[in-house]
Design a protein around this nucleic acid. Structure first.
Lengths: 351, 351
DNA sequence: AGCTGGCACTCGTCTTTAGGGAGTGCTAAA
DNA sequence: TTTAGCACTCCCTAAAGACGAGTGCCAGCT
């Protein structure tokens, strides 16, 4: 039986007001305040009894004997899952989002724009993962000879994203040979997803070698190098980290340093965000729930975003556990939907 | 008459030991310590007299009545300009640099590598500007049609750097037309510097229009859009910011926030670094000398780096004013030279 | 004239102490 | 079951005192 079911209506109501109050004030909430804040008309003494129950359940916690109560992680969790009344976005914010993520913006960096909007409007840190490579279409590929056996591969995906990589070939190719190889690859693989291309390449090398001439074989081998697995270096755009320095609960320098180091090492954050990719809709990690020491005092509100009904990435907001969830949640939700729409190829190439 | 000339040998010697001592300890230096530290065999009382003089000249400063002396910005300046005895790099560091900036490294991100080396080995923040576009050679250009009149331009410079930009053309081009235009541009502009290309394009449009057919004209017009002035968004790679959070003199959260915000806004830093481009060799900004509030408590040790005897960029180290200049200066110097060498096209394409 | 020892003084830091305030837990009564 | 009352705990702040480091200055020494 969940805690929400154990507790009666009144206790839940009180927990809700407590969390709301704590989020807005940042101070432990005492029984007197709670008695006035809730419209239950209960005396402080009664409230204290309820608080003792909530504390037994591990939903609130007293920093010391004569302080009010502060929500624990479980308390926040219950609040977020069952008690929260989300506030709709203000029209000003909504229009700012629409404007910032409009397709005709010209600048190609929609991902960066989304991240900036998240951090700017929430005054916390915004993060957006780059769209998954696997679900990304190959548009065009190009080879350029560098020195010796080094070849620069440039490929374009998804209408306008340019990637490049240096590969080492087994022999030296001339510019013309490389051009020919690129032409071949473009003619057969263009328009297919990177993942599909990767699989097709392997298959061809295994099964169809006899059917191919040397030029085709070279081309396919180069494609294999170019789309090598390790190529999919997942990455994300993080902005507004500095906003986090303003929060008193993160003002411990050591803690903050850990957090920022986690940001620049990336892989921890990537792993965390990857988990959110599995679920649709908004997901929340509160404090230690993330499993990463560095995020101890932080919450992460994320949502996956989709292009053509396929989840391709995750975006979210990072801030102190004490954040205005009722505003942030719809905010992240809407941003994810708008970003998905902005990335949709149908809308970037209207008929 | 400069301060170094006003002061006698002994005072300078004492200032030097004071600064060295303060840099290593971080504590105000008292007369007793100074008397033992310097090999002048003077009593503390004598030292105190000298200190009073130095204080009058604004070279040192006492945080309060009964504290030792701390160097002022002028004090550091004098120290750095005239008193410093630079230490040669340790062989371990040197080999680390060589290894990290070796040309055959395979990864194309030499700039990033340089920045990371700077921050890793100095335990402060490392910054490297991207090489100036003007002095960069065009290697290859490519156009890809997007929707309507939008065209994706991809161009490769300096052997392996890939840039891309979206331009809006006046009419819709087919893939074949774009291919043709790219071929034309590659044939005549490849190998020339971006700056030269930009000028040539303008000249052709003004003078040689009648000589050109429509295809050539379109190509040149697109080139103009592609190499538009605003294209040269100067940028830099900054790493190891988190290292700065460890220094007690930067532990004031507001100050640190300002600093980090300056980092992410970039333009201030860019302007500062641009100034260093004019001079060859190592330049140093101590504290407020930079003219930027946010860098108040920081010093910046920079050096320009050159390719083929032409200054193309700047790199440096950012840390607290109290840093080990005698180590950092040669460090920055060597890194700049090695980076220049690594970028030199001659060494990337051995005959 | 320049250097040195001595001495009074200043100031920051650390610790102790005391007082006030906020809020609790418990108990007994409504 | 709720409420009022009361003793108690603990944090926070300010004030006071002791301590130590280091100075400035003066008078004497070389």
């Amino acid at each position: 039986m969940s805690k929400a079911q154990i507790l009666n209506e009144r206790s839940l109501q009180l927990l809700k007001t407590l969390v709301e109050r704590y989020i807005s004030d940042g101070q432990p909430v005492g029984s007197r305040v709670l008695s006035k804040d809730s419209d239950l008309n209960l005396s402080p003494a009664t409230i204290r009894n309820v608080m003792a129950d909530l504390e037994d359940l591990g939903l609130v916690h007293s920093p010391h004997t004569s302080a009010g109560r502060v929500p624990t992680v479980s308390g926040y969790r219950l609040f977020v899952d069952s008690l929260l009344t989300v506030k709709p976005l203000e029209s000003k914010e909504l229009s700012r989002l629409h404007q910032g993520l409009s397709v005709n913006d010209g600048s190609s960096d929609v991902i960066g724009a989304a991240s900036r909007l998240l951090s700017e409007l929430t005054q916390m840190a915004g993060v957006v993962t780059l769209p998954r490579r696997e679900l990304v279409c190959l548009r065009h590929i190009e080879f350029l000879p560098l020195s010796h056996t080094r070849v620069l591969v440039i490929f374009v995906t998804n209408e306008q994203e340019v990637h490049n990589k240096i590969i080492h070939t087994s022999k030296t190719f001339s510019a013309a040979e490389l051009q020919q190889a690129a032409n071949y690859l473009n003619s057969i693989y263009s328009g297919r997803s990177l993942d599909a291309v990767r699989k097709a390449v392997v298959k061809e090398l295994q099964e169809d070698q006899e059917r191919m001439n040397q030029g085709m074989l070279d081309a396919v081998k180069m494609a294999q190098l170019a789309f090598d697995q390790d190529n999919k270096k997942d990455d994300y755009v993080l902005t507004g980290e500095t906003n986090l320095m303003g929060f008193s609960e993160l003002s411990d320098m050591d803690r903050l340093k850990n957090l920022f180091e986690a940001f620049s090492q990336k892989q921890g954050v990537i792993h965390l965000l990857d988990q959110c990719m599995k679920a649709e809709g908004v997901q929340i990690f509160i404090g230690e729930e993330s499993g990463y020491q560095a995020f101890d005092q932080c919450s992460l509100v994320t949502s996956s975003y989709s292009v053509s009904d396929e989840v391709v990435g995750v975006l979210g907001v990072i801030g102190p556990t004490r954040m205005a969830y009722e505003k942030i949640i719809p905010f992240v939700d809407v941003t994810a939907k708008l970003l998905g729409a902005a990335l949709n190829p149908k809308s970037t190439t209207p008929s």
